Computed example of a mutant assay.
Amino acid sequence: MKRSIVVLLSLVLVSASLFAAGTKEQAPGVDNSLQKIMDKGTIVMGLDDNFPPMGFRDEKGELVGFDVDLAKEAMKRLGVELKLQAIDWNAKEQELNTGNIDCIWNGFTITPERQEAMTFTPAYIHNAQVVVVRDDSPYTTLASLSGKTVGYQAGSSASNAIDDTPEFKQSVKSFVEFKENLTGLMDLEIGGIDALVVDVTVAEDNIKRSGKPFRILEEELAPEDYGIGFRKGEQKLADAVWQQLEAMAADGTLARISTKWFGSDITVVAK
């Protein structure tokens, strides 16, 4: 009889321990995302390291960019250490969901499909998908690219913009996927493709920095917004980061960082 009681008490203690361990992670319906980051003291930001000016490697191989500067300041104010993790942009959702990174912050376009899969902050920058061509090419409109070869970055919102412009998509002879936008721009320069669909922020920065003979068609494919993506349901963490951006907007830090990278304040926080 005593042995049975001891065994029963042992099972109760084990069950209680397992329950406590489970609740420490995250019970269903409970959002402890912010507390987990605060307890850990670090947050891992996933980014494409070939996406200037949002995030890229400088001549020393260090990760720099507009989003990098924003994240550094926001996490400093939040009181946690920022760790930058370059990822394969085509596998960004998997990197987030498996816990390899804690957020995606790198010119990350908010789309209905992505909102179904993760939690986003509000938009902090307006963007657009545009078409870049060589300056000496005869192309001036989307229609003029009929029968031509057009490139875009795999896993990017450029593919959504193309899908959402069926007349343009059907008129193009073929599409070429690139792992990175910079690779696509290099292929455009040597004539491997006739045009590249890319974020206007990236296109303008590349033309300005490189001095390459590119131009942007006036006709846009789609307007879009940049946000910060977190795992689905991690609203408290998303809200805490957004509060830091709002504070940065209020004291002029956001405008200063934007001017550093874009020449003016193009952010839309608290506007």
Rank of each mutant, 00 (worst) to 15 (best):
Gly41Arg: 02
Thr42Cys: 11
Ile43Glu: 03
Ile43Pro: 06
Ile43Cys: 09
Val44Tyr: 10
Val44Gly: 05
Met45Glu: 13
Gly46His: 07
Gly46Asp: 12
Asp48Arg: 01
Asp49Ala: 14
Gly55Lys: 00
Gly55Trp: 02
Phe56Ser: 00
Phe56Val: 01
Arg57Val: 08
Asp58Asn: 08
Asp58Pro: 07
Glu59Pro: 01
Lys60Ile: 00
Glu62Met: 10
Glu62Gln: 15
Leu63Asp: 03
Leu63Gln: 11
Leu63Met: 08
Val64Cys: 03
Phe66Gln: 01
Phe66Asn: 04
Asp67Thr: 09
Asp67Trp: 07
Val68Ser: 04
Val68Leu: 11
Val68Tyr: 09
Asp69Ala: 14
Leu70His: 03
Ala74His: 04
Met75Asp: 09
Met75Cys: 15
Arg77Cys: 05
Arg77Trp: 05
Gly79Ile: 14
Gly79Tyr: 11
Lys83His: 11
Lys83Asn: 15
Lys83Met: 15
Leu84Ser: 07
Gln85Met: 15
Gln85Thr: 12
Ala86Trp: 03
Ile87Cys: 04
Asn90Ser: 08
Ala91Tyr: 01
Lys92Trp: 00
Glu93Gly: 02
Glu93Phe: 09
Gln94Arg: 12
Gln94Tyr: 05
Gln94Leu: 11
Leu96Gly: 00
Leu96Cys: 04
Gly99His: 07
Asn100Thr: 01
Asn100Val: 09
